[in-house]
């Protein structure tokens, strides 16, 4: 790891100010992606601004027809939250499948989506549930937020504060982990909710999370596994590596989507 200046932000404003004044600053909360990246010397930020523990970014609360999760909320807290468990059990299930127990004790929602790793789990939930990303400047619909591999709609210096997840009628997340890293080789989040039926896929796409509209259409008509059994997903644009070819990933999307529909609660 290269050395850097470390700052603990006292408030959201303080964090934004420090980020702005740094040469090449970066935010850190749990650091579950950032610190391993720094250890391998794959990045060399001048400053780390620690936003973990900021009150503005913490907590989980029910807000009307949505569950709002603070950006610095750790995965373990989402998994254990009675609000999340009661209203969007699939989201709690997803949080429980992220990384391992120790990653879930440190890693945060904001960190996961700010990085937009194509193999992260949360992006599938945000997209399928039609979540809204709240920042220190504005609100961004999930549909507009994920812009491709490690790319998001966030402006430089913009800080995610919360994510509002509309409560769906039913939803399920099915994950096929990469056998080695346990990131999602393919993860499929199916939700039937205020914004209709949505099927979002993480892990498989070369450009990150995406929706399978053909499945959504079929499921909108008939919400059953059978409705999508003949929908084939193209391997074009899917990732291929030593663990899975693009065609195998495409196949898994179908299997997991059907299982998600069957599992929807």
């Amino acid at each position: 790891m290269y050395d850097f200046e470390y700052h603990r932000a006292a408030s959201l404003d303080d964090a934004a100010g420090k980020l702005k004044s740094a040469d090449d600053g970066t935010l850190v909360a749990g650091g579950m992606t950032l610190i391993p990246t720094l250890k391998l010397r794959l990045a060399s930020p001048s400053d780390l601004i620690d936003i973990s523990g900021l009150a503005e970014l913490s907590g989980i609360k029910a807000e009307g027809d949505a569950v709002v999760v603070g950006a610095a909320t750790i995965h373990a807290a989402v998994a254990a939250s009675s609000d999340v468990r009661a209203k969007i059990p699939a989201l709690a299930d997803l949080a429980e499948l992220i990384g391992d127990a120790q990653v879930r004790n440190r890693g945060t929602l904001g960190g996961s989506i700010a990085n937009n790793d194509p193999t992260a789990d949360y992006p599938a939930a945000l997209l399928a549930l039609g979540a809204t990303i709240r920042t220190d400047h504005r609100e961004i619909a999930a549909d507009d937020y994920f812009e491709g591999l490690f790319e998001t709609a966030l402006d430089a210096g913009e800080i995610i504060t919360q994510v509002a997840f509309p409560v769906p009628e039913k939803a399920s997340y099915q994950k096929f982990p990469n056998p080695a890293s346990r990131y999602a080789l393919v993860g499929v989040f199916v939700a039937k909710g205020p914004s209709g039926v949505r099927v979002a896929v993480t892990g498989a796409g070369l450009d990150g999370v995406f929706r399978v509209t053909e499945m959504e259409t079929a499921l909108a008509e008939n919400f059953s596994p059978d409705a999508i059994k003949d929908v084939s997903v193209s391997a074009d644009g899917l990732n291929a590596d030593i663990h899975a070819g693009a065609d195998y990933r495409a196949h898994l999307i179908g299997v997991l989507a059907r299982r998600a529909v069957a599992d929807c609660t």
Binding site: V28, G31, I35, A101, Q102, N105, R106
Partner: peptide, 13 residues
């Protein structure tokens, strides 16, 4: 009280 991987936490954190 929670288990963490001390190789992925900065001492200053």
């Amino acid at each position: 009280g929670d288990s963490v991987k001390s190789c992925s936490v900065l001492a200053v954190q």
